[in-house]
């Protein structure tokens, strides 16, 4: 279960913020890291996000993701110098491709940018309960039926994954091989997992509409909520600060700060 639920109970400052303030932070991290393409600037953004992760006490919750994050950063470091050509300071030439200091710095900046973005999203999810997030999304204007559907997906994923793993074990016991062989045979054999999972899921959810309607679910009706969100003074200060910094970062970029390549994001 814990693999599918990222939320970690805690009493940190970040835990206590309204989910809307945390969503504002994620959006602003995306803005801060996207407007600059110099590694010093995107590295600063990454440093700030890492500090928030450590202060919130959720770093251990993210241990499953570190390998993916390092891989993502490495791919960026390799790919962007190949595709984002330009710059005057040649570092070396290999197989007719000129690698410049600027293109390598751009790759490093994008690597920092990507890791900062991923970590900010994970920070939101590790410090916010799904039901609070659902309520925040409706408060931000998402139709209730859509927010309900999204939170239902989060809730039902453990059951669906459990069914899937049971079917996978049962089919492998019957000799279905989805582990080895070429890509085509693995693809073909995986249908033996997907079809029973779909049928099981439809059986499980066949009565869901009746169950939720009998409890008063009307898709487009106005609703009241048991949970309450309070946007307190600390949320106002926090949100105003991150929004100000986002505006400042855009102003800086427009004035030529924080760029290796001025004409690209």
């Amino acid at each position: 279960m814990s693999r599918y639920v990222l939320y970690a109970e805690g009493k940190s400052f970040f835990h206590s913020l309204d989910p809307r303030s945390k969503i504002a932070l994620v959006v602003c991290v995306f803005v801060w890291s996207s407007v600059f393409n110099h590694p010093l600037y995107t590295g600063t953004v990454l440093g700030a996000v890492l500090a928030l992760v450590l202060i919130s006490g959720v770093a251990s919750r993210l241990k499953l993701f570190w390998f993916g994050l390092v891989s993502l950063a490495t791919m960026s470091l390799i790919l962007w110098p190949l595709f984002r050509r330009g710059g005057e300071n040649v570092l070396f030439e290999a197989m007719g491709i000129v690698f410049t200091q600027e293109s390598v710095m751009y790759g490093l900046a994008v690597a920092f940018r990507l890791v900062a973005m991923v970590l900010s999203g994970l920070l939101l999810l590790t410090t916010t309960r799904i039901e609070d997030l659902e309520l925040a999304l409706t408060r931000l204007g998402m139709p209730y039926s859509m927010a309900f559907g999204i939170s239902a997906v989060f809730r039902f994923i453990p059951a669906m994954v459990g069914d899937g793993l049971t079917i996978l074990a049962a089919q492998r016991a019957r000799g279905v091989n989805v582990v080895s062989g070429n890509v085509f045979s693995r693809m073909k054999n995986s249908a033996a997992i997907i079809v029973p999972l779909f049928i099981t899921t439809m059986r499980r959810f066949g009565e869901l509409p009746l169950a939720i309607e009998s409890r008063g679910f009307v898709p487009m009706a106005r609703r009241s909520y048991l949970l309450e969100l309070r946007f307190r003074a600390r949320d106002v200060v926090f949100t105003a600060t991150v929004l100000f910094l986002a505006a400042l970062s855009i102003y800086m970029r427009l004035n030529g700060y924080g760029v290796v390549f001025p004409h690209v994001i």
């Binding site: 899937g164 997992i193 959810f205 898709p219």
Partner: peptide, 22 residues
Amino acid sequence: RYTQMITAFVVSAGLYAALLFV
């Protein structure tokens, strides 16, 4: 506006997400 379509959405999204995990 249709509860059954919302359920279909949950199944589509959940199945897709669950299979990525499986």
